[in-house]
Design a protein around this nucleic acid. Sequence first.
DNA 1: TACGATACGAAACAAATCGTTTCGCAACCA
DNA 2: TGGTTGCGAAACGATTTGTTTCGTATCGTA
Lengths: 208, 208
Amino acid sequence: MTQAALQNNDENNSEATPAIKKGRPRSAKSKTAILKATNSLLLHMSVQELSIEAIAKKAKVGKTTIYRWWPNKTAVVMDALISQPGIQSPLPTPKNNAEALIMQLDKLIRMLNGNNGETIAQLFSEAQADEKAKKIFSGTFLTPLLDAIEFSVEEGQKAREFRASLDTKMAIDLLCGPIFFRLMSRPEELNDDFRETYPKEAVRLISA
Amino acid sequence: MTQAALQNNDENNSEATPAIKKGRPRSAKSKTAILKATNSLLLHMSVQELSIEAIAKKAKVGKTTIYRWWPNKTAVVMDALISQPGIQSPLPTPKNNAEALIMQLDKLIRMLNGNNGETIAQLFSEAQADEKAKKIFSGTFLTPLLDAIEFSVEEGQKAREFRASLDTKMAIDLLCGPIFFRLMSRPEELNDDFRETYPKEAVRLISA
DNA sequence: TACGATACGAAACAAATCGTTTCGCAACCA
DNA sequence: TGGTTGCGAAACGATTTGTTTCGTATCGTA
């Protein structure tokens, strides 16, 4: 549905199905230049301040090329984010669900800790008003994240690691809410100290 | 600092000091018309979509009048919000700090539950990118709220009601984070059921 | 009552932004 | 070589934003 998803589908298709296309192929150089320029510009300005024109100028690319491949600014920024190395690094195998959750929360805080934290907060914010932005942000970032956590919570409840009395959605909010709230209210306090103490504490709160 | 604060200062001055001013006084009719129009329009559109022009048109007022008294859209919306009756209703006297916290959280959820929830979420969002919006939102809404909760938390820790091992900031994030996270990720689930179950559960988590 | 000061609303303003379209050229496949 | 698609530059119309101008209205005070 979202363009970011379509991007992946395209790439997946090229693996699964050859899908021979005629005509001039898409320029990989332009694509990477656009994503690089986007990430670079986001170091100095907000998502709101960022304009497609600025991206095109910095990437030395026509505006047309950007609008042809992405539906809007949100989609470009989202793609630029996930294109960064280390973002979708796999987690080591945990020995139980509590440890799994701790690792997931730790990874989340790491992701929000750096320069990307602001950007993600701004995408989350944009999603509040804009329906298209919401679909892209949810589908690409939030839903996969929450689904993974939901899985660990439910497995942990089955295994009697976590209190079964707790509603799953409530548990998710308890685990993730404080992280995002701190990100948006006091981002400077989303630091290594928090990352080291919070996940254990949070998981302890929902443990049996 | 903020215009909303200045507004209050003006009103406070008119109580404390007569502060006789010459010239035509500010039109109370225009002011209320602007705030009413803002609240009315916010029922049908987002803060982003809302324009000063639309407010002026609906309130049958010149754009000039709005820009003269408020620095930007955020300030108008914030003033319109707090001008609503029942927003700053005082809380009954609690018998302990746990009960105080529960009442505060209940009140917060009530506030975010109705039509104002979306608006507040959007103001919070706007604050992520815009520094002026951040100052207005923090100074008028967020900081007073968190200060009150911080007070109850610290008092409760002194009284041994709550775990002293918990960092105050961490406790605040644990209490408020899930509420705002649900508001921004699954607002439809910020309902009466949540309001009845969450505050007790949250306070229980930080209790000794 | 007249005057100075300030507020009011309508209108016009420049500047910026947005997504689209047009165009000539480039790159690939059959 | 011909057909097809991607590329980038430029210009476009439509909006939006906050400011300024201007004539009028409403207050306190001389």
